[in-house]
């Protein structure tokens, strides 16, 4: 073990000037801008679903969409706030109300098609395209979030990962219901839930390890 005064001397001697982080709200906004860009690019490449406007007039659908969007935005803000050591952990509750609206609306939609039209509503082709949307949305956003919040690794990895995952899942769900007409089918709901559960689960399980892998290391030599 190196003596503490020696460690301090070594750290001071090897110190380089650092650029301070921008305020967490600004950084969250940057990430959300990236999310909007990804969704917009997907909209250009895949095209909006044909019945989007009439569906948006349906209050249940509109509330669910708004809930998903709000969950995505608020969870991202919470992730960037909680990642800083001097912010309260209570920020974790920020996306909770929106998440409740979003998830309860999925639950409501989930019941309807099972009763009215049976489980065979979605063809394989639609399911594959849904999966493509899911991966194309969530992968770049997750990676960007991971890099932007890597400094949180030694602090609150699990909480930050959960918030980040929730945000990505909500935005992915929004993208899915924008592009695919299957929101009233079992398959899309499974994806919605599956995406959220997968990201929350993976985040909880591997978040720490992923953060450790990408975490900044003290450079003493």
């Amino acid at each position: 073990m190196i003596a503490t005064p020696d460690l301090i001397d070594s750290l001071a001697a090897n110190m380089k000037p650092v650029r301070r982080l921008r305020p967490p709200l600004v950084r969250a906004a940057c990430w959300l801008l990236l999310a909007a860009l990804v969704v917009a690019l997907l909209a250009v490449s895949q095209g909006m679903r044909s019945d989007l406007m009439p569906r948006l007039c349906d209050p249940a659908f509109a509330v669910g969409m708004a809930g998903a969007v709000m969950t995505g935005v608020l969870a991202a803000v919470a992730a960037f706030l909680v990642s800083l050591p001097d912010r309260s952990r209570s920020w974790l509750l920020l996306p909770a109300p929106a998440a409740v609206i979003w998830l309860s609306n999925i639950g409501y939609q989930c019941l309807m098609p099972w009763i009215s039209m049976g489980p065979d509503g979605v063809s394989v082709g639609e399911a594959t395209r849904c999966l493509a949307t899911l991966v194309l949305t969530s992968l770049p956003l997750s990676l960007a979030m991971l890099v932007m919040l890597r400094y949180a690794a030694p602090l609150r990895p699990t909480a930050v990962t959960l918030m980040g995952s929730l945000s990505v899942a909500a935005i992915t769900a929004t993208a899915l219901s924008l592009f695919h007409a299957g929101d009233a089918t079992a398959m899309i709901i499974m994806f919605n839930f599956g995406a959220a559960a997968m990201f929350l689960g993976l985040g909880g399980l591997f978040g720490r390890r992923m953060f450790e892998w990408i975490a900044p290391r003290a450079d003493i030599s």
């Binding site: 503490t4 460690l7 301090i8 750290l11 110190m15 650092v18 650029r19 301070r20 982080l21 990642s83 800083l84 050591p85 400094y151 030694p154 602090l155 975490a215 900044p216 290391r217 003290a218 003493i220």
Partner: peptide
Amino acid sequence: LLTVHAIRHT
């Protein structure tokens, strides 16, 4: 001390 050093930019 090492952690403070690693994340001093925060």
